[in-house]
Amino acid sequence: MAENSSLNESLDKLARACRILEMEGHGDLTLGHLSLRDPDGRGFWMKRNRIGLGEVCGPEDFVLVSFDGEKLEGEGGRHSEWPIHSEVLRLRPDVNVVAHTHPFYSCVMSSSTEPLRPFTLDADYFGEVPRHVDDVALITAVSEGVAMAKAMGPHFAVLLSNHGVTFCGTSIEHATCVGVFLEKAAKAHIVGASAGFQTSMPTAPIRARRNSQIMSPVHVEHSWNYFCRKLDWLTNPDARTQPKLFR
């Protein structure tokens, strides 16, 4: 467990993000993991293996992993797909949080070769979501992590073909919202496509404008606080401070 109080606060928040993602459809048994860039540059703090996202309680559920995959601190095992995290963090200095999960609709969407269509505003949180194709079931080699990170490029999410998703963010709040919004967009796409609806594809400048209007720091903050309130109420329904919205 980290001894730094500021780092412990961040890992507490990262644990909450894990539980929020489970609540919002990202849970898949004990699969899936989040990481936080270590503030001292030693590597990244990664969810330990053998527990689900919804079981992550606090700093004790993370291990410090070097960029070469060596576990440096913490109790518990290291997920084998650590290169997903190391290589995104190496390639993207703007990113502080990386996640890999298996949300149902996004997993189904990952098998499609067509772009994520804007049936709802949710797709415009992204504009474009690239797709990474590989011939492995798990990304356990550095070379595989590099290829995936390059496929993601400057974006904050990438679909892993017939597998799942990797997403990231500049902060814990941002990464969490990216994951939730991506699953909502994938669900809207699949439902709309299944209904046989034809969609208009706004031009790139229009989609960029829509993105700037909705994917704002204020919206991320409000959404994160909403998810926190929802999680608190679901785990403690008798709390008097919870809003009536969830009753």
Rank of each mutant, 00 (worst) to 15 (best):
A2M: 09
E9F: 02
S10V: 05
K13F: 08
L14W: 02
A15R: 05
A15I: 06
E24Y: 02
G25W: 13
G25A: 12
G27E: 08
G32C: 07
S35I: 03
D38S: 07
D40S: 15
G43S: 02
G43M: 05
I51A: 01
G52K: 00
G52D: 01
L53E: 07
E55A: 14
G58K: 11
G58E: 08
E60G: 15
F62C: 07
F62N: 14
V63P: 09
V65Y: 06
F67H: 10
E73A: 15
G74A: 11
G77S: 13
P83V: 03
H85R: 05
V97M: 03
A99R: 02
A99C: 14
F104K: 14
Y105S: 02
S110H: 12
E114S: 11
P118K: 08
T120A: 06
A123E: 14
F126Q: 09
P130M: 02
D135H: 15
D135I: 14
A137G: 12
L138V: 15
V142W: 09
E144S: 02
M148Y: 04
P154L: 09
L159C: 01
H163R: 00
V180H: 05
L182H: 02
S194L: 04
A195M: 10
P202G: 03
P205Q: 02
I206L: 15
R207Y: 02
M215N: 09
M215D: 04
P217E: 08
V218S: 11
H219T: 03
H219E: 14
H222G: 05
N236C: 11
Q242L: 10
F246C: 12
